[in-house]
Each structure stands twice: as C-alpha cells, then as structure tokens.
Amino acid sequence: MLYVESINNALYNLMDLDSDVVLVGEDLHDPYGGAFKVSKGLSTSFPNQVISTPISEQAIVGACVGMAMRGMKPIVEIMFGDFITLCVDQIVNHATKYHWMYNEQVNVPLVIRAPMGGGRGYGPTHSQSLESMFMPVSGLKICAPSIFHDPGSLLSECVINENHPVLFIENKLSYPKKIQIEEKLNGGNIHRKVLEKKNNSSETILLSLYPDENPEIVIITYGGMAETALNAALDLFFEDEILVNIIILSVIRPIPIKEFLSEIKRAESCLILEEGNKLGGWGGELASQIYETCFNSLVMPIQRLGSDDSPIPSSIYLEKNVIPSKEKIVKTVKSMRS
C-alpha cells in the first residue's frame, strides 16, 4: 500500500464509522481531491463530512477547535505545511490552551494534518519542515509517520483515542511510496522491529541489519528522513561494513525517549537527523534529553544533521545542498568513527 493510500483509507474508515468525523480544508473535493490527493474520493462518499473551505487557515483551524469543543472529531488539512504559520495563534493560544486553562472542563480532540518537507522543487515557502517550531507548545502532540509506519493506522489512533490537539505531519515525498511495515525489509536483510510501547499512539521503529549485534552508531530520525537514513546505512555497511541502526519515531512531541533509551545505550554513540533547520531544531531538544538521561553511556558527543540555516531553494539541484542527503549522512557517520 502507498503512504497516501493508507491515509486515504483511514480517512474513509473514520468517516464511515463515525459521522462526527469531518475533514476540513482547501480544495478537498472531487475530482481534484486535495493538493496531494489524500482526500480523493472522500467527498463523493461522504458529501456532508468533507468540507472544502475558502483560503482561511486561521478560521479553519479555529472553527475546528470550536467543533472539537462541542464533541465533533474534526480533521483539518493544511494544504502545504508551510501555511501552518497562519494557524499558530489558534494552535498556541486556543486549541492547546482550552483543556488546561479551563481546568480540564473541556477537551479539544482536533487533528491538524500538514504535509511538510522538500525534495520536490517547490521552493522556499512550500518545502519547509516547520514542526520543530511547535516543540515548546505545551499540550500539543506531534505525530510524523515515515514510510516504515502505517500512517493510516496512526492517524486513526489519533482521531479515535486522542482528546487533545495533534499535529499530524505527513511527508510530501512519502505520499507515492510504498509503506514498509513487514518484519523483514529489502529482501530480508533489514529487520524492522517495533520498540516496546510506552504510549498507545506512539510507534517507535528500529531498523537493523544484524539485530543481535551492537551497532557502531545509531541514527535517530523521523518522517521523510527515515528512508534517506536507511539508504545511508546500507551504503555504510556494503561499502565499509560500518554497522548503523536506525530509530524512527512516529510521535516526536512529547519525545518517547524511554522507548529507545536502551538502543542508544547499546550503540553508545548517536546521530540525530531531521529535515528541518538544524538551528533551533527538534534534535537539539532530543540531544539534551539524551544527555540528561544517559550521558555516561555515550562514548562521544551526540552529532546532529538537519537543513542548513538557509531558506530552501526552488532549484532541485540547489535544494539538495540544503536538505540532509544520503551523502551527508554517510560523511557524518564516517567522521564520527575517526
């Protein structure tokens, strides 16, 4: 199944099971079916539950906050994740505040879906990964599945079981890719293991070539970077026999660090990888949490990779230099060994 199909199917099932589930966003209706085709077919099957709106991101998110407070299960689609900036007030001062500041008298079960990430040449305002901007927003959960997750079932989990706002980050490059959720991937070489859950809707994945051996380095990442990390790990192994494991988070806020602490201890050195800006990024928070909890298990400083501190160029050739690539990962891992 493709990543996009998984989400589309999940939306279909959610609306089918519960008429209080509505999908709200811009240009969702058939035959267009959303900018990334995630809502394809849904408006035909559920004409009352798919609501195409004017270009009013703030009002859309705000209205869905209101719907959620009245017991509906709204799902917002932000056409490009970059436009989340227009919803920041609603997310920061409304959606995530009400439950707490009204002393837990109300819930806001709202899911905001936003496609993030570059690699498609959409340029500076349509290619960013802005989720790390929301790291300090208390009361928000951020879920960002990769192709090694089933994004549809994670979305369903958020919609059905969460009582509080969730920012659900989808990766643009992942949409047309097949999801890889078997126990063995890549013709059996790669072992995919779901790490012991500490929270229902979080699903942290470990990819390894030799699961019984301690790797030299573990890469911790999420979303679209997961596949890039795996390609780098394969290169490192087949070229130089450097064994690298990969931890892939689905929930990146709060960070379910307990789920993968033992994997960090096993590797004793780690590289944190994200697509968003490295400066002020998600990885900084993660690194700090790792240092606070298991400094003594590390034999070298944590390394981080993220986008350069630059807007993302439109030119697909220039873009490659800004966003972390397989080559950059390989180079960083090698530099960590010498």
Partner: peptide
C-alpha cells in the same frame, strides 16, 4: 481568536 471558535461551535 475566539470568533473562529464560536463559528465552529455554531457549525457543530
């Protein structure tokens, strides 16, 4: 900010 919220409630 409350206007969109009230709007959504009315929608519900």
């Amino acid at each position: 900010g409350i206007l969109p919220n009230a709007l959504g409630m009315a929608f519900a």
